[in-house]
Structure formats: structure tokens, C-alpha cells
Design a protein around this nucleic acid. Structure first.
Lengths: 132, 132
DNA sequence: CTGTATCCTTAGGGATACTG
DNA sequence: CAGTATCCCTAAGGATACAG
């Protein structure tokens, strides 16, 4: 009910963008080198455990993120962006551009983001993997 | 509470993207030639009058849209995008690209959208004004 | 035609305690 | 550490009637 997609790309996009938390999680994965449940939790945004777990599950269902057991630490679980998730990057960049122009509180993106932007897609994943 | 901006462009963007209706109204203004309250209402999305009025007011507060009395018809009111609103276009395009790639229900954007995309920004407004 | 006002329902989400 | 399970509360939003 309320809003079905039926062929509109904007409505489709709103399925992922149209809530308060998903895009922040994606941002953390994409630009901040956060990869663990605990890192999202303590990111200072104030998301609560149940909501975080719910969004992670939804994003995984939508094939935007992917979870794997951390090879290094036995217990931990690592989240990473899928191809589909990485392909959200142009949206992120265009939002950043807009905010940079119209929000005086927005800081200029960090250097590595500018750099990232100029790389071919194939290199972006490597750059992200080397973060932090 | 909950989520303040303090310098993050994504959080800033979520002010417009992070709800269910605003982006659909912007889409209607930007690509569908809808300009009147009544046209938004009967767009088939099922928005109700109070919500529509509220979103229009918010978008106007955010300087994304602008309302003027219709010079032609005495009673009507015309909504249009401001410069700031028009500058959301790259975000729209990037969402469309993503949806076109990953949503099999999404139809290829109509020809004029492709055309619009290739125009310099200065011409886009004119093209939009001639819509419908 | 463009909204307000009201009422009511539901979904989102915070807090907290608990589990594998 | 990575979640579930509750409980509860608020804000979002649908329906409808009414007003300028």
C-alpha cells in the first residue's frame, strides 16, 4: 500500500534512500572505513541496536551489502558493499555536490574522496579496502 | 534530537531525500510538467491534502520550490523549482541510472529526459518550462 | 482551487534487558 | 560481539470535513 514502485526509478530509489538510516550506514561503509556492527553503533548518530540490525538485514536483502565472518577474528562479522552498493557512489557524490553548494555547514569532502571520485570504478573497491 | 547535521553532506541531503514524498513532488515538477496543487494530488501516488500542503511548505522553506499566483488563471497557484531545486537534477539522474541498472521494472527514461541531461544548465529551465 | 483542521491508525524507532 | 525481544511512545500520515 501507499507507495508501490511500478516502473518509476525515483520511487525505486526511495526504497533505499527514503529512510533515515540506510544511507548513513552506506556512507559509513563507503567513506569512513566502518565495517563492523559495533562501529556503526558507536558512530555517534545514535542508532539503536534493533534498528541497526533491521537496516543491515534489509540492505542485505536488497543485495546492497554483504556479510562475511571476519577471517582474522573468529567471532566478528564484516560488512561490505556489493557491486550494487558500490554503484550508489555517484548518488552519494551528487548529494555531496549539492550539499557543498547549499549547506554552509558542510565541510569539503576529505581528500581521499576527491581522489576516489576520479578513479575508475575498478579501482575504487581497492581504495576502500585499504581505508583506515 | 536523533539526527542533527553538523557538517555531513549526506545527512544534509537526507533532509530532502529522507522522506517518502518530497522527492516525488520534485520529480513531478522536474520531469512531469506538474505545476499545480491539484496535479500533485491527482498524480496517482495517493498523497493526502494535509501531507501535500505540508511538504510544499517545507520545500518552500528550504528554498527548493517557489510559489506564485498564476498570471493566467486568477485563482490558481503555480509551483516551480528554484535554482537550488533545479540543482537537484544531478541527484535525480544518478538515481535514475542506478534504478535503470538494477530495477527491471524501471522503464527507460523518456526521450526528453535524455535530451535534458545533455543540455547546459542554463537551457534546462527553458526546456522544463515548455513541458506539456 | 488551495489549502486547514481534526481525528484516528499505524509504522518507526528509542530504551533496555536478554541470548548465542 | 552481534544480534533478539519487549515495551512503549511519538511522529508520520490517511480520511474526511470544512474554510478562504
Amino acid at each position: 500500500m501507499s507507495y508501490e514502485r511500478n516502473g518509476c526509478p525515483i520511487r525505486f530509489g526511495l526504497g533505499i534512500l527514503g529512510d533515515k538510516w540506510s544511507l548513513l550506514i552506506i556512507r559509513d561503509l563507503m567513506f569512513k572505513g566502518r565495517r563492523y556492527y559495533g562501529e556503526f553503533l558507536s558512530a555517534g548518530e545514535g542508532i539503536s541496536t534493533n534498528i541497526l540490525a533491521d537496516r543491515l538485514a534489509r540492505l542485505e536483502d536488497a543485495d546492497i551489502i554483504h556479510k562475511t565472518p571476519d577471517p582474522a577474528h573468529g567471532k566478528k562479522i564484516v560488512y561490505c558493499l556489493t557491486e550494487k552498493g558500490l554503484d550508489l557512489m555517484p548518488i552519494m557524490f551528487s548529494i555531496m555536490d549539492w550539499a557543498e553548494k547549499y549547506d554552509d555547514q558542510t565541510e569539503v569532502p576529505r581528500e581521499f574522496i576527491k581522489e576516489l571520485r576520479n578513479q575508475p570504478k575498478s579501482l575504487r573497491r581497492k581504495i576502500l579496502a585499504s581505508l583506515k
